[in-house]
Design a protein around this nucleic acid. Structure first.
Lengths: 201, 201
DNA sequence: ACCTGAACACCGTTCAAGT
DNA sequence: ACCTGAACACCGTTCAAGT
């Protein structure tokens, strides 16, 4: 989804910078992400990005938005894969895909969930993140039934659990004696029953 | 818990830097944390901290370690407060205290759980974080009974859920229609049953 | 033993100047 | 319309020099 027409000198610096930035993020992590290094990888001067992104934050927002796009696609593919027939199965399959994405793309995942007041300033990021949320809420509604009025709270529970699992694994905060695969499977298995029996509503 | 005797010129620059750094973190957030600003707040030259901390990471580790210390104290106080009689109540009370700490000290909480390869290089940080973990595991064992062999996996489930809730709230990633207080209470209420019925073990 | 000030190699951002 | 190079105000880290 291109957002700028081809620039005069370079070819398509906007796309090149997004790609270079994504690669840099995967290579070095968010801590070492640098606009000047993006420019270097793109083969332009350090001031060139200013023509396409107002600031580093802007570039990071676009990378995060595309992360959400891919995230939604992968969860969709997993949830619709053979073997996920019941709503419960589909929800658990989505949970697995969620954690798998986070582990496979940890730097981008961290960026996607990083506190950022600039979040609200990017339309692409906002709509992409909302699409991810809607996807989850739909899966939750399928489990608890459409008559329930508190789907948002229940979906928040699911999101919190998978986000927590993914975060602890990525950041290496699980105790050494805890097998990540076991934690994932055991915790995800509680989800359908938990959101059905949640609270008093 | 002082780690250095009084320095010659300043008084106790080690402690002063830790306090200045903690204040800076609360004021400006991790993104804008700067060693030079810590030195400025401490009233010393920007090179002075080198005598007490080998790098910024070292100072951040000590701040994070003290965060874990306070975290453990607060959870302990909450869990032992009147009204938490049964193990189930105590676990839920700890969950509430967990999220409350994260919300009240968001910058420090983020630091505590930030991915950091330097984590392993600080003894204080490592033991403080482990104390927090042991505290949780003990509360979980009280709920599921001492005969269970998978307390670690069950405790990981609890940790993931509360960490996920806290993270989503801090980072503003809960949908606007989700009331944080409701999400907290509803999700925490599922914990005792979830960890008792977890998996097939 | 601890602290300072200058120095070095970076960074994001700005802006005149080039094409 | 887009890009460059110099400039500015920062940053972490190093190191000689001071007390």
């Amino acid at each position: 989804m291109p957002r700028k027409t081809k620039p005069y000198h370079h070819g398509d610096l906007y796309e090149t910078l997004v790609n270079a930035g994504t690669a840099l993020l995967k290579d070095e992590g968010l801590q070492h992400f640098t606009l000047r290094e993006c420019a270097r990888r793109a083969g332009v001067s350090h001031a060139a990005p200013k023509n396409h992104f107002a600031s580093v934050e802007d570039l990071l927002c676009e990378i995060a938005a595309r992360g959400f796009d891919q995230f939604v696609r992968e969860l969709d593919a997993m949830a619709n894969a053979a073997g996920s027939q019941t709503p419960d199965d589909r929800l658990i399959a989505m949970g697995r895909a969620y954690v798998a994405f986070a582990r496979a793309n940890s730097a981008i995942y961290l960026l996607m969930f990083r506190h950022s007041q600039a979040f609200a300033k990017s339309d692409h990021l906002q709509t992409a993140a909302q699409a991810a949320w809607m996807q989850l809420e739909t899966a939750v509604r399928a489990v608890i039934g459409p008559q329930r009025t508190d789907a948002v709270v229940r979906a928040s529970h699911v999101w919190a659990l998978v986000h927590g699992i993914a975060s602890l694994i990525i950041d290496g905060r699980l105790p050494p004696s805890a097998d990540p695969a076991m934690v994932i499977e055991q915790s995800l298995s509680t989800l359908p029953a938990a959101i059905r029996g949640l609270g008093a509503t």
